[in-house]
Write a protein that binds this DNA or RNA. Structure first.
Length: 423
RNA sequence: GGAGGGGUCGGAUAGUGGUUAUUCCACAGGUUUGCUAAACCUGCGUCCUUUACUGGACUCGUGAGUUCAAAUCUCACCCCCUCCGCCA
């Protein structure tokens, strides 16, 4: 959510942001129109209320008159305000100047490439045809997709044996890494209220991708399954006024994540690259309202993710998302894509964003500065590690000629093995 | 699921239909003062209006209702605490 005063004064700029992001820009004009009506009505209502407040008990007749007048106008005001709030939620965050304008992933910019892709079948390589993670997982009894679908339906999967240890090890490794960097570990609730998803900006835009529980009656107490720990962590401080001296606040959230993946029905149907439920450690930062500081955090959060990929020795590249490929709330966003030989391409494994005030205005999270001013905080989030997607990269990059998979050094203590072989 | 108690500013707290919602702590600014401390004064949330000064409205868990007037009365809902039941 943006400041209505800002929208009023920068209509063209806000409309351009929506257009660049490829979403509907008409709400901008609508919200300005609604705001105008709202203020007109508000002035009338407040004038009448002011009169009413002046009246003493001697002038009850006049009071009755005012009551009738107010009853005529107030419902209109309430209606306009409700509509105004609704349309306000459809105004996107404005991309930073450094963000390239573009339509889709083709317009994203590579800002960094790290690591050497493994050479399997090439001339100078090890001389074998690499397998993908599905084949590897099946032959080493790490992955059972067939029974996963039998039990859970489309995109269901069982992780087995060392894959279980590896996934849990990855979570623990990432959590420990972030604790080292000063993050507070959190396990948040993933069944959340509607407003929690509005606060992050997942609603209204991403509603279709979120599972809804069925335990509500007649639309009361709607609950949803959050797709990332970012959702509950952002609302952890909702409606609170923090103290500047307590900032920045760093949270490392562990959770299962639930995604319907509607609109992706035909995409990535093979294996466990795109699944309905997975585990993730997420980084969330709450800092001062200062673009310079939040930009620094964006780089730091990215460097933490990169550090982990480097320790896992997985080749990756860092992409700056263009306007058309970033989410509605975001100001600036990097994706990190990890090399996956089975796909013969890089696949997204991390997503690092500055949200600025967008989420803190929705969630009403402020802080008191040293000068006793009250401001909205800035919020950022980035993936630390998500699994099983990262297992895809590990299996495929670490496979050997004989069909075995080496265990990345940093994970060996969790798996208790250096190599996974056929039983 | 059942019974009872509660929700007032960042924290604590007073307030059973009528001026401006009380007080304390914390915090910020100011005055005084060799320094620090202390004392005192002012401020401390949201919105509207104004270039500004200012003026006004709202804010007592949420929403609706009764009333000229609601923190206070009525109804519904949410949350917290205590106890009982069920349960991994």
């Amino acid at each position: 959510m943006l400041d209505i005063k800002f929208i009023r004064e920068n209509q063209k700029l806000v409309e351009k942001a929506a257009k660049d992001k490829g979403i509907d820009y008409k709400p901008v004009a609508q919200v300005i129109e609604l705001d105008k009506k709202r203020r007109e009505l508000l002035a009338k209502v407040e004038g009448l209320r002011a009169l009413r407040n002046k009246i003493t008990r001697n002038d009850i007749e006049k009071g009755k008159e005012i009551k009738v007048k107010l009853k005529k106008i107030e419902p209109g005001l309430r209606k306009i305000e409700a509509e105004f709030k609704k349309v306000m939620l459809m105004i996107p965050g404005i991309p930073d100047k450094s963000v390239p304008v573009g339509k889709n992933e083709e317009d994203n910019k590579v800002v960094k490439t790290w690591g050497k892709k493994p050479e399997f079948s090439t001339k100078g390589g090890q001389g074998f045809k690499p397998k993908d993670h599905v084949e590897l997982g099946k032959s080493l009894d790490l992955l059972d997709l067939k029974r996963g679908v039998k039990v859970g339906g489309f995109r269901g999967y069982f992780l087995k044996n060392e894959a279980v240890l590896m996934q849990m090890g990855i979570m623990q490794y990432a959590m420990n890494k972030l604790i080292e960097k000063g993050f507070k570990p959190m396990i948040p609730p993933m069944i959340v209220k509607k407003e929690t998803l509005i606060n992050t900006g997942h609603f209204p835009w991403g509603k279709a991708d979120v599972y809804k529980t069925s335990d509500d009656e007649a639309g009361q107490n709607e609950r949803f399954l959050a797709g990332t720990a970012e959702v509950p962590l952002v609302s952890y401080h909702a409606n609170e006024t923090l103290n500047e001296k307590d900032l920045p606040i760093l949270y490392a959230g562990f959770s299962s994540c639930y995604r319907r993946e509607v609109g992706n029905y035909g995409r990535d149907t093979k294996g466990v690259y795109r699944v309905h439920e997975f585990m993730k450690i997420e980084q969330v930062v709450i800092c001062k309202n200062d673009m310079k500081e939040s930009s620094e955090w964006l780089e730091k959060l990215s460097s933490y993710s990169e550090e982990m990929l480097q320790e896992l020795k997985l080749p990756y590249r860092k992409m700056m998302m263009c306007t058309g490929d970033m989410g509605e709330p975001q100001i600036k966003k990097y994706d990190i894509e990890t090399w996956m030989p089975g796909r013969n391409s890089y696949g997204e494994t991390m997503s690092d964003s500055i949200m600025g005030e967008f989420q803190s205005r929705r969630a009403n999270i402020k802080y008191r500065t040293k000068n006793n001013e009250v401001k909205f905080v800035h919020i950022l989030n980035n993936t630390a590690l998500a699994s099983p997607r990262i297992l895809v990269a590990i299996f495929e990059n670490y496979q050997q000629k004989d069909g075995s998979i080496k265990v990345p050094e940093v994970l060996q203590k969790y798996v208790n093995k250096k190599i996974l072989v056929k039983k």
